[in-house]
Design a protein around this nucleic acid. Structure first.
Lengths: 269, 269
DNA sequence: GAGTGGTCTAGACCACCAC
DNA sequence: TGGTGGTCTAGACCACTCA
């Protein structure tokens, strides 16, 4: 016990990274990690299972005891691996029931990635209105953001979010065409629930994490008309890149938020 | 072992919360927690020591072994308490050296709360220019934000942040006068380093966490002049409330960010 | 080499949930 | 009643830092 042993691992065909120093490489002076904790190796294995779709969103993963047995480690080691994944919102623990693959379905966090809140307080309750959905060849900037070759097919979507009958958000978004075969206006129109839930349910694309860049811009003529504001109105420009496993970007989104009665909320720590 | 025992606790005069169900209260149907894990109790004690200034920012707290002995629990329990505090950025662990009270001094996180980044990439390197610093009676909105009685004395500060010679941020901030006795323009002018470092070093006010509300607004005449932009230019309005221990608000800050060559970056997960 | 945090184990018991 | 995650312990060993 307590020996970070070299992973006999007859149970799983998946090779683990060497748990101790790699003399040859270490001697080469590379800044590569010379030691990977066991629980990190377990975490990598779990991540791979997630990525390969071995466990589906909303479904339970095997119990800690079962995983400990599978990987021939103690329950505490599995626990620490899962702890980190829970902290990263990849997985949700529920005492007495099990550990579940995170999903963009309701489960309390309806708008996990939408930081818009009404000034009045409470949570945003927004309606969607699809304006456009087309397949096209990506422009250079979109391709770059999605790490695709320029001209690669993408799906372009334009939509409005409304609070009551007042437009609040104008969203343009781009998705890699290859990963979203069959996505069209009809699909989007008929779908009830969070968009990211549709993506994970129908296209096996799970949004794990996103980066946003926020600016203040003046409304152009077309945008102003759609948001029903005078041209030149200051709007929040929110450019989001969403990533799936392995930090692969799978969505580019450009939102214009009308912040007269709403605001973007953020928590710093 | 393994018994969440009622805290004999002859070593510390600090009472701990009851570790097991409180039958009387539980019967009253209150939604109060009927059980508080031991490590949470330890965490509360550690938080209180932090709040009381027993350990100063940048200084080490006692070792895990020492704390375990002090509180008569196992090292693992102390570890879990500290783990949570480290996750909340209250404390920083350094292997081989110890655990240190978090500080707003350099230590890698120069601008912990400033999310502005140059579009060109890299980190913002901004100069400060103090415009004004005065003591006054708080207006109603400021008092409300700081949870003070209206008319209570506050310190009002106005300053610019510049990237090179280009103004990028116009900040107005308000602090409770009582907590910041002696803070004046001279103090601010002479101070080198992060503002929050000054607050914790000279006034024992430690900013732990902050909430921001972000909007797009049009520059007014005065603001436009200060930021050297045409009036009406869209600006990011960032209203921040900073909190210290116990979620007590101790700063209100209203920033106007010129986002022509910079952006507000955010990470969602 | 001594002291710190970091990892790993094994085992016990607790709180919660479903059957 | 049995299974799940959650807590707590005790002890061993490892990685890192510094004198």
């Amino acid at each position: 016990m307590g020996d970070n042993r070299p992973m006999v691992d007859t149970a799983t065909p998946t090779p683990r990274t060497a748990p101790v120093a790699v003399p040859a490489e270490a001697a080469m002076g590379g800044p590569l990690p010379t030691y990977v904790p066991l629980y990190q190796q377990i975490k990598s294995l779990l991540l791979r299972s997630l990525q390969l779709g071995e466990w589906q969103p909303g479904q339970p993963i095997p119990s800690e005891m079962e995983l400990a047995a599978r990987y021939k480690v103690s329950q505490g080691t599995v626990r620490k691996a899962i702890d980190e994944m829970a902290a990263e919102n990849l997985v949700v623990r529920r005492q007495g029931k099990g550990t579940f693959v995170a999903t963009h379905a309701e489960e309390g966090t309806r708008y996990r990635f939408l930081r818009l809140a009404p000034d009045a307080g409470g949570a945003a309750q927004l309606r969607r209105r699809l304006l456009d959905c087309r397949r096209m060849r990506s422009t250079e900037d979109v391709a770059a953001a999605l790490q695709l070759p320029a001209g690669e097919p993408v799906v372009e979507v334009r939509r409005l979010l409304l609070d009551g009958d007042r437009p609040v958000v104008l969203d343009d978004l781009w998705l890699p065409g290859a990963a979203f075969k069959g996505l069209d206006a009809a699909k989007l129109e008929q779908w009830r629930g969070p968009l990211y839930r549709l993506f994970e349910a129908e296209y096996s694309v799970r949004m794990i994490r996103a980066e946003e860049q926020i600016r203040a811009v003046a409304a152009g003529a077309e945008e102003a008309a759609l948001l029903q504001v005078p041209p030149g109105t200051p709007l929040l420009s929110v450019e989001r890149r969403s990533f799936t496993y392995g930090d692969r970007p799978v969505e580019l989104r450009r939102g214009l938020y009308h912040t007269a009665a709403h605001h973007y909320r953020n928590e710093l720590s």
